[in-house]
């Protein structure tokens, strides 16, 4: 059994009197594929925001590779290796697709020597990633004009460009066609070879079950189940949350 990469314990976040997360424990091991599911408003995105540093949690600790992330701003966390994609794509719209990838390559990922990349080096590596994603033909297009599926791919490509150890994919497939979903799943499955752990947040059960080695379920800010996909799916509480009484 590998040591845990991300270990969140007792994470609590409230907005005024509303508890978005209540004492949530969440663990990801190196290279693991984890599905995170739950109905709308169950706190999935809030958990992602607390892990990546977009929000700060009110209670609990989040350890990444054994280091406490408390107080670290988002840009420091991605430098440690926690990358994310956004549910609603947030491209740098005025930049070309290639330049979108240059940003994390220049700002988040040190090279092996611990130095920053040069522009040329960043451009070459960005092009490599685009090729893997099948976006290389659109490298020079303005990212603002991309189609939905390409925007989702760009989100993942940009996250990849940060050279992460953990990638959190926040509903990268919502609204896509069945073929497009398969494309995205293939991309995410490919992360394993690079040793990247993936947390997939998704509503599309087929994708989650097919993809995940482990599934965690959030309902109303609490984690109600965590385990092998088929076990979790058979859990009566999960069934209740999804299908009603």
């Amino acid at each position: 059994m590998t040591a845990s990469l991300l270990a969140a314990t007792g994470v609590t976040k409230h907005f005024g009197g509303f508890y978005a997360l209540e004492k949530v424990d969440f663990e990801v091991r190196a290279g693991e594929r984890v599905g995170l599911i739950g109905p709308n408003g169950s706190g999935k995105s809030t958990l992602v925001n607390c892990i990546t540093g977009t929000l700060s949690s009110d209670e609990g600790t989040i350890l990444f590779e054994g280091h406490d992330l408390a107080g670290l701003p988002a840009h420091r966390r991605i430098r440690r290796g926690i990358a994310r994609s956004f549910q609603l794509p947030r491209p740098f719209a005025a930049m070309s697709v290639l330049d979108n990838l240059r940003i994390p390559l220049l700002y988040a990922a040190h090279t092996h020597g611990g130095k920053w990349r040069s522009e040329e080096q960043a451009g070459d590596e960005a092009m490599d990633i685009l090729r893997q994603m099948g976006l290389d033909a659109k490298a020079d297009e303005k990212s603002g004009g991309l189609t939905q599926v390409d925007l989702r791919k760009l989100e993942l490509a940009r996250a990849m460009a940060a050279r992460p150890k953990l990638l959190i994919s926040d509903e990268a497939m919502a609204g896509l066609s069945s073929n497009e979903i398969d494309e995205i799943i293939t991309i995410l499955l490919g992360m394993k070879e690079r040793g990247i752990a993936v947390v997939m947040i998704e509503h599309i059960m087929r994708a989650v079950v097919h993809f995940s080695e482990r599934v965690a379920v959030l309902v109303a800010g609490r984690k109600i189940a965590d385990g092998k996909p088929d076990e979790v799916m058979r859990n009566p509480e999960v069934e209740k949350a999804y299908l009603g009484e």
Binding site: H75, P91, P104, Y107
Partner: peptide
């Protein structure tokens, strides 16, 4: 937000 999450301080 995307800039911050891409490592830009």
């Amino acid at each position: 937000v995307a800039a911050e999450c891409s490592g830009v301080p």
